[in-house]
């Protein structure tokens, strides 16, 4: 690896196609995410919400754009020196968790690019990527920190002890927090994704009107949101006159309450210097406010990621790939995708 430590990251675990170039796991040189919005504008045509086909069509153009953002052509060579050396030192891709048909496109693309350029391939855990997303924006953070990773597919509490060293403290035992937002939103007839819709509607609702249950779990740092979702449906069935705003506000209150309380408890348990939000749910305004408030009251720093770092992106995959390459070397080319890959801790 050259001194620049330039890693091309590729992320296709779900319904966003993303590629990025990151230097030494810390400096984002370029980052392209093909969200629906710029898809329609930039690549044209109807874009299916899902995986396989869209990723096959989009991965190469998205990689090409990410390379261009780093001053490189599709062959990985500098625009100013097209016969010069390859400007990428390793290719990283998400190997899981995610949808198998989607993951395979990124994995196959990354391994083929690694072969083409004769550079190492690194297979990255998507969830570990989210931990580094937090670090990408807070390089000065003092460790250990507790990371609350809450998205449509996952809800985890992780202790980040040192760069590349982490422990999983707890996880959801049924539905993810973001999934609960999406499902309640659609049940109420709101748009998708549901998080922003509930966030917006809750402002005009009474969060104290309905006391939805806060599920306790066997593991003190675990989460459960399935019962809450069912309680919302049950309440609306029994009270057809209730407004969506009041349901949204009371529901959001219950979710945020549990997320913040568990994170605070975890931070105290491990003696954390700060706490960090990650994943799509980190965009929720009530969660951000409560999170910051609660940790400030305890004299701890809270790190709130930008919107781009909350959602799936490939910069975090490239960063995780860099640190993984340093720690444990390349991933063999006979690696496949692991749709149900867990985050277990670094040791």
């Amino acid at each position: 690896m050259t001194d620049r430590g330039r890693v091309l990251g590729i992320e296709t675990s779900c319904d966003e196609t993303a590629a990025a170039v990151v230097e030494r796991g810390r400096t984002v040189v370029s980052s392209i995410v093909s969200s629906q919005v710029d898809l329609h504008a930039r690549y044209g045509g109807v874009v299916p919400e899902l995986a396989g086909r869209a990723h096959i069509e989009l991965t190469l153009p998205v990689v090409t754009d990410a390379l261009a953002g780093a001053g490189l052509d599709r062959r990985g060579r500098s625009f100013t020196d097209p016969d010069g050396p390859i400007g990428i030192d390793a290719v990283a891709a998400t190997i899981g968790p995610g949808l198998i048909g989607a993951l395979l496109v990124g994995v196959s693309t990354a391994k083929a690019l690694a072969l083409a350029w004769d550079v190492p391939f690194v297979g990255v855990n998507h969830l570990e990527g989210h931990l580094y997303a937090a670090m990408l924006e807070a390089p000065e953070a003092e460790l250990p920190v507790v990371v609350l990773l809450a998205s449509g597919g996952h809800t985890l509490l992780v202790a980040l002890d040192a760069p590349g060293s982490y422990r999983v403290l707890g996880a959801t035992v049924d539905d993810a927090a973001g999934e609960a937002f999406d499902k309640v939103a659609r049940y109420l007839g709101l748009g998708y994704p549901g998080g922003p819709e509930i966030d917006r509607l809750a402002v005009s609702g009474d969060a104290a009107l309905i006391r939805f249950p806060r599920a306790s779990t066997a593991g003190v740092f675990d989460f459960s949101f399935s019962g809450l979702k069912t309680a919302v449906v049950s309440y609306v069935r029994a009270h057809p006159e209730v407004t969506n705003a009041d349901v949204a506000a009371s529901f959001q209150e219950a979710v945020v309450d549990v997320l913040v309380a568990r994170t605070v408890a975890a931070a105290e348990e491990i003696g954390a210097r700060g706490a960090c939000l990650a994943g799509g749910v980190a965009a929720n305004s009530l969660l951000r406010a409560r999170f910051a408030e609660s940790f400030a009251a305890r004299g701890l720093v809270s790190y709130l990621p930008s919107h781009a770092m909350c959602t799936d992106n490939a910069a975090m995959i490239a960063a995780a790939g860099y640190f993984q390459l340093q720690r444990s070397g390349p991933t063999p080319l006979d690696a496949g995708a692991v749709p149900d890959l867990q985050l277990r801790g670094s040791k």
């Binding site: 096959i56 990689v63 090409t64 599709r74 048909g101 395979l104 196959s108 083929a112 083409a116």
Partner: peptide
């Protein structure tokens, strides 16, 4: 079969793209 097709086509596109 879809799974194999995606693996092979993705690899071909990346090899050709990466090698020009």
């Amino acid at each position: 079969l879809f799974t194999g097709l995606r693996v092979g086509v993705a690899a071909a596109k990346a090899l050709a793209g990466g090698l020009g």
